[in-house]
Design a protein around this nucleic acid. Structure first.
Lengths: 115, 115
DNA sequence: GCGCACCGCTTCGGAAACAGAATCGCCGTC
DNA sequence: GACGGCGATTCTGTTTCCGAAGCGGTGCGC
């Protein structure tokens, strides 16, 4: 299972269009979450695992190698992980989604009311 | 596997914070892609399946029930699927990510050059 | 009425991804 | 030199996904 990259065919699309590579990368479980958790902290392996409610270490390693490969995350000399410049851009791109989740919660709660 | 909803515990987080529910919902394979494909068309089941490079019908059905449940997608009387108001909001929230994928592609391509 | 094509949707066996725990080597500290 | 914490790896069992076949329903030509 190679890390998705723009320009190469990815799971679910053979065109290699960047957007498809991004959809594959972030459509893999935990990848969105990892970017989210690293948004303003640099975390070690185990600390990151804790933040993700104890996701399995094997999958965390797998995801980290994918994100490292995608230049979204980098590893410091002391082995802690943090977002690259590119990764911070991805987080910025994710922020509207976070804002949307608030509207989403409100809408579902409102609909709960008049039922 | 229940569809994630804000206010309820989800995979990877027990807090029920909306953002965690959103990260779970969109961190599931194909969900980002489905919203993307429905961004400006209303599509039938099989048409949608084609757009997603022939994803398996069983998983498509599973994802659609999740998205229907989350009020992100709705079904017309003629059974075709389209984004709800909420779903269009989600797509809008996703657009920066699409823009980012372009920068991402450029950055990776540039690094390819001086190597 | 009958065959046919298309549709949304379901079922099922095999393949791939994930979870979870045990374990390794590597530092520092005491 | 025993200990604890760390990143990382390996292994086994479960969950999820894939892919193909097939279901019932609907519309159409004949």
């Amino acid at each position: 299972m190679p890390a998705p990259k723009p320009g190469a065919p990815v799971r679910g699309s053979s065109t290699g269009r960047p957007v498809m590579a991004a959809l594959d990368l972030f459509g893999r479980r935990w990848n969105l979450r990892i970017v989210w958790e690293l948004r303003e902290d640099t975390l070690g392996f185990r600390a990151l695992q804790q933040r993700c409610d104890g996701m399995s270490s094997s999958v965390l390693r797998q995801r980290l190698t994918e994100l490292l490969d995608a230049r979204v995350v980098e590893q410091q000399p002391d082995a802690a992980y943090r977002l690259t410049e590119l990764g911070r851009g991805a987080y910025q791109a994710l922020r509207p989604l976070m804002r949307w989740s608030g509207e989403w919660a409100a809408a579902l709660a409102g609909e709960e009311d008049h039922r």
